[in-house]
Design a protein around this nucleic acid. Structure first.
Lengths: 292, 292, 292
DNA sequence: ATAGGTTTTGTCAAGCTTTTGTACAT
DNA sequence: ATGTACAAAAGCTTGACAAAACCTAT
């Protein structure tokens, strides 16, 4: 029973996690296990995430780790250089499975420290999202875990996306088709485009094509991109997409964008790897797939 | 199950909810739990909704929440936890004083998550560096602490600077004057310029002007910037700076760049706030200060 | 369940590998079978790799080898790391020559993805820096190209250095001598030390010895390292280096650290290959060169 | 294997502050 | 009804302590 009732003070928190208050304070002081915010009077206020962190701490202790190491592992900070070793995607998924927010952030931090954004997007984040989706279909990952992962990753990417509309480069308009809610890979696409100096106007999930058309008329972008995972969502927008394509170079992306539809509309198609696609876009003009 | 008998006065209300009148008044006064209307004589008049609210309050208390939090939750308001409370610059300096690298990173993480890069540069990083410098002069911070801070911050900023040379925007060449080693504010300048879509070629500390000239000829930038904290370092380069200014729009920056020298060389001057300066640069062409 | 738990202390480690602690210590003392890093308090901290090494030792014993031979074989079986192909250095230099930041990052990304950090440092980054220096002396590379390369590489390495102050291992203080500005190989040294579980406090370029002494008193490190390319810079600090050596185990590094000076001061010397040097340091206590 | 010393870590206590239910005077 | 007072409960920090685990050396 989650019962996410607001912040807890140390007494009740200690009762719930089964660790006495003195020890909680010692763990905080010695290893920085928890960093609870304080009430105005100075009382510690714990959150639900802290409950899980303490649970991890206890599991680690049971596994025989010293308290210092157990805390380190519970916080989610392994040695930074481990980012270069082993299966990082798996580490990310493990953290997701444990609802270990700090762990997810740590994996992302370490990866971004070790590799360039493009590499992290291509080799970690996009594959991880794919696997999250696959595991969700298999039922080995719950919807709440999928949401948990999406929200953290989206937040990180959007933080990097600050001010991506500023500047003088060519402008790209990015939108998910109406009904489509998966916007993260579109953010990734925008970020790579940004590293090439493009400006980005991002509409995100579930955007009516009419809205995009309006924006096109107001901003005269060099490119508009509409993504969808589901072919049907694009199919039923054929008409409005056609109108859009009359006004701006258009590209469709995502598994829902079929070669057939793109050829019919006479627009480009960005396939599979959106990072590579962004680099292509930046390199030069796109052409629609050949009709067969 | 009491059916809704009209408004109740505090005595009967207290009896029904099982909380004594004094406590009800305290909860009202301290946490605003209830806001009963008053009779003409000033008596509190409670409604059925208030019964439920008190019931929620009691459930929350039983669940172990503090009275303050229990009331908050019963009312249904959730306060957002402010991400950056207190004096962030002070927190940063404290971490520096303790050689607490994780602490410095944590402050930077939180700030970058909550605010735009520009804001963090202008209101946290540059002021912090200034204060580090000031405290070093006063002797309240050692050089080793200054080095410690500089290296962490430089690392963070250079990490953000990945790929800032890519794209199609105008190119800026950034260098510290020969002998000058303070390169962090120059990195900050470059980062802001990058948010405007410029490309940046960064040479950092202690760069001979002659080789900047070489680079200018190889890359044809739209702007070159040379910074120095010490006027003498620029003064003794007057000749080579003159040659540089013949080949590229040049700006001098930092406390070492005097109006007088800039006027003499006929180059622009970027004063004080390098974040603002970068925004100006991005906005339009610069002109040298008026000679007096 | 592998549960990539962090470092284990001897008790839990012994339980897992099925060899009692006394015997583990004897194998370490007599045959150098394991070289666990130590906590600040001196406790042995074992890693997962050590588990495998002990397993090999036991297999060898079961096969009838003597303990000494079994240990020898267990140690020697570790596979050598693949070397980076020589032309990677050339690719890096080409990107530098073209001021192609994306190219430099791409080479680094690919190398870090394919090889261990240690290998990349030893076989790519340090050789590349050496060649950059050499070409600069020959005049085939300009100082601006050298600065360009240094700043990108420094940024990448400092990003990896994130959180290298965190943990339970012994602490190393790293500084360049006053006047010395080449800090990249010192960062590399710190990173390798970190892979062995050490904590690192990094002061970087041009650090007065007096403030290193202050920091030593504040943080009580297990080792301090001062580097210089120029013998004169160390020579003129003989006195303060002597004072430093009284307070902490000290090592001098870089081409400027002569055997003669180290012997005179009674401190260790880290020669040529800083990656190898870091591995030595991690393996055990250092001793000063013999005076001749 | 044992002896004698050190480090790590869970627990506790002293002295002080904040929070909160209750009581009392106006 | 209001405002103030007060004391018990719960929390905070600092410092200390002892058992368990670990160290070196014999």
């Amino acid at each position: 029973m989650p019962l996410d009732s607001g912040p807890l003070r140390i007494g009740e928190f200690a009762r719930r996690v089964g660790v006495n208050p003195e020890l909680l304070r010692a763990w905080e002081r010695r290893y920085g296990l928890l960093q609870p915010i304080r009430s105005t009077g100075g009382f510690r206020l714990y959150t639900v995430e802290d409950v899980e962190r303490v649970a991890r701490m206890r599991r680690n202790l049971d596994a025989g780790l010293s308290a210092a190491e157990a805390a380190q592992a519970a916080i989610g900070e392994t040695r930074p250089l481990d980012a270069l070793r082993g299966d990082t995607v798996a580490r990310l998924l493990t953290a997701v499975r444990d609802y270990n927010g700090a762990g997810v952030h740590a994996v992302l931090d370490q990866s971004l420290a070790a590799f360039s954004l493009e590499t992290v997007l291509r080799d970690l984040i996009l594959p991880a999202l794919t696997r999250v989706g696959a595991e969700w279909e298999q039922g080995t990952l719950s919807v709440s875990q999928e949401h948990f992962a999406s929200n953290i990753i989206r937040g990180r990417l959007l933080a990097l996306a600050r001010l991506w509309g500023r500047g003088t480069g060519p402008l790209a308009l990015l939108a998910c088709a109406p009904g489509e809610t998966h916007d993260i890979s579109l953010v990734a696409f925008g970020l790579v485009l940004r590293t090439h100096g493009w400006r980005v106007l991002f509409f995100g999930a579930n955007t009516p094509i009419a809205t995009v058309i309006q924006a096109v008329e107001a901003t005269e972008p060099a490119l508009a991109v509409v993504t969808s995972f589901d072919p049907a969502l694009l199919e039923q927008e054929t008409d409005s997409l056609g109108q859009l394509a009359e006004r701006v170079p258009l590209a469709l992306a995502g598994p829902g964008a079929s070669d057939e539809l793109c050829a019919r509309l006479g627009v480009a198609r960005l396939d599979g790897d959106l990072v590579a696609a962004a680099n292509e876009v930046a390199a030069g003009p796109l052409s629609p797939p050949r009709p067969r």
